[in-house]
Amino acid sequence: MTERIEPSLGRDFREQQSNPQAGADRPGMFAGASHFSMVNPQFQAATNIQNIQNNYHTWNTNDVFAIRKWLKAPDPSTNFVAACDKRTPGTGEWIFSHPQFVEWREATSGTLWIQGKVGSGKTFLSTAIIQELKADSASLCCYYYFDNRDNSQTKTNARGLLQSLLLQMATRSGGVHPALHGLYTKCTEGLMEPTTAELSATLEVVSKDLRPVYLVLDAMDECSEAFDVLKHLAHLKKNLCIAVTSRYMATDYDVSWYIHLDHTEYFHQDVAQYLEEKFRHRKLKPELLTEIVDQLREGAQGHSVGLTAK
């Protein structure tokens, strides 16, 4: 386990009803903000995801829609749905009992790095993790798939990631986090584009109000600005539990937990499960099916077999 470094960027923003002038002597994220009301005038560190809504302003539907349109965030749900549809049921679930994953999930912050070569099932593994975390109503799971096959190329850079995470973390049905609305107002209510630095700083402010939050990032090796992304993650990992899958090991970025997929028994378990599902409806003698599965599993040796059920 490597030493954990907790860098800091930006400042925590809180306004208390009991002291409305707090912070008035210094410029902040909300400079120029106006025309808003509050569900609960106090900002509090949420100890449960159900309390997050208390830190969100209520806006009319048109305002929420305008902010979402202004962000122009890439949609990672298309990748998630595609992976769910192709994933063989049961594959990847071994990770839920893996000691490194268990430690990561029980922590309050830090990064789990999952490394494996092409075809080791990283995308299906991250999808299984997302499905597992999203089933827990007591926490918030955000995710992103880096995808160099995306024609817009927005799913390969740092800006696209920040836009998507802000959309996932800072907007709720009928509500927007005040830090995001402050940035929207600062950008002349959507007439100007925010800088990448502003997106990053706003995301850090938002992340401080969310507990617990898991962030799953798939295919870091397909990111064209991996160094910049890791720099942004370094500012967030003290607030979030982050899981990353990649063909490569982490460099210039300290992680707390590692899982290596190459040539492990877990990969072979998934291969066997995939092959059994593939041949399950064929009229083969059980002993012949077992022989075929064993030979194909041994022949895979870490190469891609898809792990998808047709």
Rank of each mutant, 00 (worst) to 15 (best):
M1S: 15
E6F: 10
S8K: 13
D12Q: 14
F13M: 08
E15K: 13
Q21V: 10
A22W: 12
G23A: 05
A24T: 08
R26C: 09
P27S: 13
F30N: 03
A31N: 06
G32E: 01
S34D: 00
S37E: 05
A46M: 01
N48I: 04
N48E: 14
Q50G: 14
N54Y: 14
N55L: 00
H57T: 00
N62E: 12
R68W: 02
K69L: 07
W70T: 06
T78Q: 14
V81D: 12
A82T: 07
A83G: 07
R87I: 07
R87H: 03
T88R: 13
G90H: 01
G90W: 00
E93D: 09
E93Q: 10
F96P: 05
V102D: 06
E106N: 12
G121R: 00
G121M: 04
K122P: 14
K122G: 10
F124P: 05
L125E: 04
T127Y: 05
Q131H: 07
Q131G: 11
L133P: 07
K134G: 09
K134V: 06
D136R: 10
S137R: 06
S139H: 03
L140R: 15
F146K: 08
N148S: 14
R149C: 07
Q153D: 11
T154K: 13
T154D: 14
T156Q: 10
L161K: 13
L162F: 08
L165C: 10
A170C: 01
A170Y: 02
G174L: 05
G175S: 08
L180H: 04
H181K: 02
T185A: 04
T185E: 02
K186Y: 06
T188H: 06
E189M: 04
G190E: 08
G190C: 07
L191W: 05
M192I: 05
T195N: 05
A197V: 10
E198N: 09
L203A: 07
V206P: 04
S207V: 03
R211V: 03
Y214C: 07
L215P: 03
A219I: 02
A226Y: 04
V229Q: 01
L230Q: 05
K231V: 13
L233G: 03
H235T: 14
N239H: 15
N239S: 13
N239A: 10
A243P: 00
A243S: 09
S246H: 05
S246G: 02
Y248E: 03
A250D: 02
W257V: 03
D262C: 08
E265A: 13
F267Q: 09
D270L: 01
Q273A: 12
Q273W: 05
L275H: 09
F279K: 14
K283A: 15
E291C: 12
D294Q: 15
D294E: 13
G302M: 00
G302Q: 05
G302I: 03
H303C: 09
A309K: 15
K310Q: 15
